Amino acid sequence: MTQRFLRVAIALVCLTATTAWNDASSAVAETTLGIGDKAPALDIEHYIHEDNGFGKVEKFEDGKVYIVEFWATWCGPCIQSMPHLVELQNKYRGEGVQIVSISDEDLETVQELMEQEYPGKEETFAEVTNAYTLTVDPDGSTTEDYMRAAGRNGIPASFLVGKTGLIEWIGHPMELDEPLADVLADRWDREAYKEQMKRQEQFQIAMQKVNQLAGSGKFEDALKVVKKVLEDMEGADDPRSNLIREQLTAFQYNLRLDSGDRSEEVMTFFRDQLAEAKKDARELTQFSYNMMASMQQGTDLGPLAGETIAALKDAVGTADEEVMPIMYVLIAQMNASMSNFDEAIANQKKAVETSTGRTKERMEQMLEQFEKMAAEEADGDQDAEGDKAAEKVDAAK
Score class of each variant (00 low, 15 high):
Phe270Trp: 07
Trp74Gln: 06
Pro325Met: 04
Ser294Tyr: 04
Asp342Phe: 04
Arg148Asn: 10
Met207Asn: 01
Asn211Trp: 10
Glu353His: 06
His172Phe: 09
Ala390Leu: 15
Ala11Ser: 11
Pro325Asn: 05
Ala126Thr: 09
Ser259Ala: 13
Tyr47Ala: 08
Val266Arg: 07
Gly165Glu: 05
Met267Phe: 07
Lys121Gln: 15
Gly55Asp: 01
Ser216Phe: 06
Ile48Glu: 07
Leu85Phe: 03
Thr143Tyr: 12
Asp177Lys: 14
Leu312Cys: 05
Ala149His: 09
Pro83Gln: 04
Glu95Lys: 15
Leu243Gln: 13
Lys360Cys: 07
Lys397Asn: 14
Pro173Thr: 08
Asp280Trp: 11
Leu248Gln: 05
Ser294Cys: 09
Glu144Asn: 08
Asp43Tyr: 02
Ser25Gly: 02
Gly151Ala: 01
Glu144His: 12
Ala214Lys: 07
Gln80Gly: 08
Val393Thr: 13
Arg240Ser: 09
Thr2Leu: 12
Lys349Thr: 15
Lys360Ile: 02
Gln348Val: 10
Lys228Tyr: 05
Ile99Leu: 08
Thr285Val: 14
Thr249Gln: 12
Val68His: 02
Val316Thr: 11
Lys349Asn: 12
Ile102Phe: 01
Lys278Ser: 03
Arg282Met: 13
Asp261Arg: 03
Ser241Glu: 07
Glu50Asp: 15
Ser158Ala: 15
Phe60Asn: 04
Glu385Met: 13
Asp177Gln: 15
Phe341Ala: 04
Lys224Ile: 14
Val100Cys: 03
Val229Lys: 07
Val266Gly: 03
Ala275Phe: 07
Tyr92Gln: 09
Gly94Met: 15
Ala27Asn: 13
Asn254Tyr: 12
Lys194Asp: 07
Ser339Thr: 15
Ser259Ile: 01
Ile170Val: 13
Gly386Lys: 08
Gly53Pro: 00
Asp381Cys: 02
Asp258Val: 11
Leu284Asp: 02
Gln196His: 02
Glu69Thr: 06
Met114Ser: 04
Asp381Lys: 15
Val323Trp: 03
Tyr289His: 09
Gly165Ser: 05
Ile102Cys: 01
Val161Ile: 15
Phe203Arg: 04
Met295Gly: 11
Glu264His: 09
Asp387Phe: 05
Met267Ser: 09
Thr2Ile: 08
Thr268Tyr: 01
Glu195Thr: 11
Gly215Val: 06
Val323Asp: 01
Asn90Ser: 11
Met82Thr: 03
Ile44Gly: 07
Val229Thr: 06
Val136Met: 00
Met373His: 03
Thr135Ala: 10
His49Leu: 03
Met363Gln: 12
Ile44Asn: 06
Met295Lys: 04
Asp232Asn: 10
Cys75Thr: 06
Ser288Lys: 07
Ala384Ile: 09
Thr129Val: 07
Glu95Thr: 08
Gln252Ser: 11
Ala185Lys: 13
Tyr118Gly: 00
Ala395Cys: 02
Glu175Gln: 13
Val393Trp: 10
Glu353Cys: 04
Glu175Cys: 02
Gln196Gly: 09
Asp106Ala: 06
Thr356Lys: 14
Glu391Val: 14
Ser158Ile: 01
Asp387Ala: 14
Thr124Phe: 01
Val210Leu: 00
Met197Thr: 12
Gly165Asn: 10
His172Tyr: 10
Lys392Asn: 10
Thr143Ala: 10
Arg4Met: 12
Arg152Ala: 14
Gln296Lys: 12
Thr16Leu: 01
Leu107Lys: 10
Ser263Met: 03
Asp104Thr: 13
Gln202Ala: 12
Ser294Pro: 00
Glu58Leu: 04
